[in-house]
Design a protein around this nucleic acid. Structure first.
Lengths: 362, 362
DNA sequence: TTTAGCACTCGATAATTTCAAGTGCTAAAA
DNA sequence: TTTTAGCACTTGAAATTATCGAGTGCTAAA
């Protein structure tokens, strides 16, 4: 691909860039005349026409029909984006704003992601996506059991990812405090560090033996553990600002938009797509570069958020192929950075956020 | 309103009913000829035309233009729905199915509602809505504190609604087990049964005094309590199957649909609407009966779910004005009933669901 | 009170025309 | 060799017109 880029003369690059940006702006095919006017180069529309004809032959542009201007092809967008990625800068002022917003809403990762999705949407005017990806191996690091009433108790579990989960468990028989204490002790001793598929029947039976007459507690309790593991494992996705998309004429085909919506809602395809990405930096999928069919007229920009080398979330933006890549790349970069700094930095965010004592430090 | 119904002759009722159902089915204006064919009455189209003209004058029907058939007005739908409400029956077979689906996904109310929303959507082919309404006064009934690492601990709270909530709290200084135990004790003693606005500064200061040298724990801990109360209080809404709506031509205006989507996403208007409803049975808002402007071309059917007299959730369906009220009323009724029976019945759902040992009771 | 018959209405669809933006190409200019 | 002005040509979008038929209201007879 970069080999091809070499072939482009500076003038072609400038024309391509101008055209892409004009099309992103207006959404309609761009003609030679327009480019002549909004371009630093001093040459006539005829010259530009010739260049455009060549750019089309090289695959960077597409002509919807003979008597129309030209539109960037996917290759054209790709070139534009690639030439952009190296150079997008951070406006530190905005970063601080994002930081503050996110910290105000601080909480567990789930809520941060949700807020971030809304943020991404409102800042870009496209659809924001926040994803908690499928994590293949969650384990528990600590158990605690609390009684609620005579038939119910709650299991509190701290996961290897550092999040806290609770499950309510109802039991036919009566629940005694003493039994619960033993249950917690037992789980802490036997189940910590085990992943879902390592909790096998023999282990469960062993637990039941150890519990003696209170063995009936084990089964529902273990089930809760399983459930929590699956919840975390399952991945989840939050969309916001879907309505923004409808402003763009590329989504005016109701049928098509409905399919897109359905796919987004069912989540699994996007989750797979994102989870399988190996690129830890910003990913940009332009049109048919995405394996998801209904997204072939859209572009998806996303970036994983890492903590200790593990992906704990993904923030992204979905919009028309002619999305404002410059802005989107920048926004996503800023947001993910903010989240990382909040999560990584072990600063007690609770207190800082509380009193607004944020001194601009990282 | 019921006075007006009296005025309708049996034949008019039958014609109205046939017309409404035909329009729900096909979405297009219904002519006298069609009604003549699909009607048990034996009279000519001319007679029906006369009746229809009268029905229009009475406000039950509307003519899009002179040379078209007729369409039910909101009053027409209202009459149809009202005459329906008394008589919709339960297909017990379906109830059992719903029960099983919900129990399989059993868990806290949040998850049940989410599942129910999906269920409502897939069963009706409209958009399913699940709402956790704004609850004005939540209190805590029990606190538990668990240490996570030297700077972090988790607060577990059981709310008056019976749900379990956790919050992670980070502290600048070090966290000692002993301090946490005292913190829990203190909170259980002083904060149980208090609503958010009853936790005043004097109380907090008293807590700080009681904690002595560990007073620095109080502030962030109390903040977590506040947060939990607000989270619960805040209300939340889950939509599913928005894409279904796009199948109906009444949502083909992209602009309008976008606005609807935006309103739905921002949640607050719908939350207000639902929270303020005083009708504990099934609510049916037809078109402009809803105070939300963008929903004036839609209908909203919803029903609160009660536990001990408190509304703990709302399940609903949003669709075009010509929604299939019969089916929707029935489905919503069934789903809410299922949820109620699961929540009310203190049966240990965990175990039943696990082994599929559901013997069709209830 | 019902019904057959008929003239009339009016939106939806199709067919047609108009318009202008934009192109490609050629020949002259740089 | 490269650039540019000029012009004929293409073609979709928008505007205009024609056609069609479902459905109506009304009248007069049953």
């Amino acid at each position: 691909m970069s080999a091809k880029n070499q072939e482009l003369s500076e003038r072609k690059k400038l024309i391509l860039k101008t055209l892409v940006e004009a099309h992103i702006e207006g959404g309609e095919p761009v003609g030679s005349k327009y480019i002549m006017q909004n371009n630093l180069l001093s040459c006539s529309s005829a010259t530009i026409r010739n260049e455009m004809a060549e750019l089309e032959q090289m695959g960077y542009l597409v002509q919807p029909h003979t008597s129309a201007g030209r539109v960037p092809s996917e290759l054209g967008y790709r070139f534009y984006v690639d030439s952009l990625v190296e150079q997008y800068a951070k406006t530190s002022r905005e970063v601080v704003q994002i930081n503050q917003l996110l910290k105000a809403k601080m909480a567990e990762i789930d809520q941060i992601l949700d807020t971030a999705s809304r943020l991404a949407s409102s800042m870009t005017n496209y659809t924001g996506i926040a994803i908690k990806p499928k994590a293949s191996s969650v384990t528990m690091t600590k158990f605690e059991v609390v009684s609620i009433d005579e038939h119910t108790f709650a299991m509190l579990m701290i996961t290897s990812a550092g999040t806290v989960k609770t499950k309510k468990v109802k039991i036919l028989g009566e629940v005694r405090e003493e039994s619960l204490r033993r249950l917690a002790e037992l789980f802490n001793g036997c189940l910590c560090g085990l992943s879902a598929d390592m909790i096998t029947l023999p282990i469960i039976m062993e637990l039941e033996n150890a519990m003696g007459e209170d063995a009936y507690l084990i089964n529902p309790a273990v089930k809760s553990v399983y459930e929590v593991m699956n919840e975390i494992d399952g991945g989840e996705m939050r969309l916001s600002g879907i309505n923004h998309l409808l402003k763009y004429p590329e989504y005016s085909d109701t049928q098509e938009f409905g399919q897109l919506l359905g796919t987004l809602e069912s989540q699994d395809e996007i989750l797979d797509l994102v989870s399988n990405s190996e690129n830890d930096d910003i990913n940009v999928l332009i049109g048919s570069e995405s394996p998801v069919k209904v997204m072939n007229n859209s572009s998806l920009v996303f970036k994983p958020i890492k903590k200790n080398g593990r992906t704990i979330g993904v923030i992204g933006v979905l919009g028309p192929r002619r999305m404002n890549y410059k802005q989107v790349l920048q926004t996503i970069g800023e947001i993910t950075e903010s989240i990382s700094s909040i999560i990584d930095g072990e600063a007690p965010i609770n207190e800082l956020a509380e009193k607004g004592e944020y001194h601009g430090g990282e």
